[in-house]
Amino acid sequence: MRKQDDTTFLALLGLIAEGARSICVGLHITAINFFRPSVCERYPRRDGKPDWQPRPGYRGDFALISDAERPGGLRCIACLQCQNICPDKCIHITPTGKGKERHPKQFLIDAGLCMYCWLCVEVCPVAALTMTPDYETSTDRPEKLIRTLEQLRERGKEYPEPLKVEMARADATSVAPTERRGD
């Protein structure tokens, strides 16, 4: 095939021998790997063991942390900081209530637009919004990707506290959120 290849019979024979040798070396390595432990995992698992779980701090589906003391049953104070920092503008909050009573009446996250950058979780002053290790979020219709307040609340019931690896808060000072009015 190569134009510079020598096409004499001997050279061709040498080429064949070399090719056969490479195949043997390849097969040898494949054989070694055949006896190495398998790294693949069946999904979904059928042997009763739990499916693969990401590490804490994984940026998966969203949840709003519950707080029975607060109006609306959520820790969220509807300060709109997550809505403002979101690079994709995929969070839409309708706040209600005044002062300490302020809470979200509606909280929409369009997971189809979201790029899971974690900025909204990072900016939250009361650690009310979190991302969970739930990764099975695919649906057949784009509308189903939009998370509503109810869905977020439901999911939040499984998580009493946000899961995170030793989070670094980039900005320690924050504007008192209750004083902010919705933009």
Binding site: T94, K105, Q106, L113, E143
Partner: peptide, 18 residues
């Protein structure tokens, strides 16, 4: 539609705002 008016896009009716 989500960028325009998300609540309408979802069919959530507009209740009285605060």
């Amino acid at each position: 539609p989500m960028r325009e008016d998300p609540e309408q896009a979802l069919g959530l009716e507009e209740e009285d705002s605060e």
